[in-house]
């Protein structure tokens, strides 16, 4: 009897590995790597992949926080517009002669305000986050257009090039992304706060009865996403050297796509940071592979749209099988 239980346990854990959506993401990642290296022999150059990753690092970092928001049962489509608006505010403030620290603080504060506005509308006024964040998406992007107009605002020469700074041979944005993933992964996976996020997302009413302050948790997540997005916006300003209102236009697709490909359940309660982490790399490999294969940006858009649909069908399928 006693030696049966561990073996049973062992068998079950093997099976559950197949039921985990991260396994799907990981398999796809390997497949994409193999496929891309067949396309071009130069592809499997680690430095090339790392450099390509810096192009979407901002969206990937914000997508990590978005994953937590989705797990808690809400969604935020305004994060990409937030990146654009805080970058525009940051660039505008420093272009008007303010010191760099003040400009960065203003940018971060703008992110805090945007996150709080989302949170207030969703939690205090109890409006559905889907529609609210579509509204704020248009609003933030529109404000960015008001501030920057049709021109681009330049940032000073010495501030440009966060993506070329290396830490032990790895570009700085990749380091930030990995560090954020580790911290958030630990918070979500090992702390009480993290478990509470899952509980809130699985069943909000039950969580309330269990004494979890679900509103406070959701509020915190929206604000966190707001601040992180604005930090990403400032990073994007440093990478690009100038800021336009259409920065990260359509980025909400890629961010939701990363979360979905990583196996986050759209109805909340399931998902991991590891999944989104892997999915971010998968997307980089796929889009770099498409660029190497000389596909038009429009076709890449089509592929991303298709991937989103396939990813959400696959995760839903895996979860419905796991429940049985």
């Amino acid at each position: 009897m006693t030696n049966q239980i561990p073996s049973l346990y062992h068998k079950k854990s093997w099976r559950s590995l197949f039921n985990r959506p991260e396994t799907m993401t990981f398999t796809l990642l390997i497949l994409a790597l193999v496929g891309a290296s067949l396309l071009s022999e130069y592809f499997l150059d680690v430095n090339y992949i790392l450099r390509s990753f810096t192009l979407t690092a901002e969206l990937s970092i914000a997508a990590l926080v978005l994953t937590m928001v989705i797990i808690s049962g809400e969604i935020d489509l305004s994060a990409a517009a937030n990146i654009a608006l805080s970058a525009c505010i940051f660039a505008y403030v420093q272009a008007s002669g303010a010191p760099m620290t003040l400009a960065i603080l203003t940018g971060l504060f703008a992110g805090l305000v945007m996150g709080s506005l989302n949170a207030i509308l969703v939690i205090v006024y109890q409006l559905p986050s889907i529609i609210v964040t579509i509204g704020t998406l248009i609003f933030y992007r529109g404000l960015a257009q008001v501030i920057a107009g049709d021109k681009s605002i330049r940032v000073p020469e010495w501030f440009i090039g966060v993506n070329t700074k290396m830490v032990l041979g790895v570009p700085f944005p990749v380091v930030i992304f990995t560090a954020t993933a580790i911290i958030l992964g630990l918070v979500l996976g090992t702390t009480i706060y993290g478990r509470q996020i899952y509980q809130v997302g699985t069943n909000n009413t039950a969580a309330l009865h269990a004494g979890i302050k679900s509103n406070r948790i959701k509020f915190g997540l929206f604000v966190l996403l707001g601040v992180v997005s604005s930090a990403c916006g400032i990073m994007a300003a440093s990478r690009l050297g100038s800021v336009r209102y259409d920065l990260a236009l359509g980025g909400e697709l890629q961010m939701v796509l990363m979360a979905m490909l990583g196996g986050t359940y759209i109805f909340g309660g399931r998902g991991t940071i590891l999944g989104t982490f892997l999915a971010a790399w998968l997307l980089v490999i796929v889009s770099t592979g498409m660029t190497v294969a000389n596909l038009l940006p429009a076709i890449q858009l089509t592929v991303l749209g298709l991937l989103l649909i396939v990813a959400i069908i696959a995760t839903n399928f895996i979860y419905s099988r796991a429940r049985r």
């Binding site: 969604i75 489509l77 889907i130 359509g250 909400e252 697709l253 939701v256 979905m260 759209i266 109805f267 038009l296 429009a298 076709i299 890449q300 858009l301 089509t302 592929v303 991303l304 749209g305 298709l306 989103l308 649909i309 959400i312 069908i313 839903n316």
Partner: peptide, 23 residues
């Protein structure tokens, strides 16, 4: 068929159809 939330489906097809228009 797949019982998916329309917001995510149409966010996907928004980009899918736009890409197809270019193609």
């Amino acid at each position: 068929i797949f019982n998916l939330p329309s917001i995510i489906v149409t966010l996907g097809t928004l980009n899918l159809y736009r890409g197809l228009t270019f193609i």
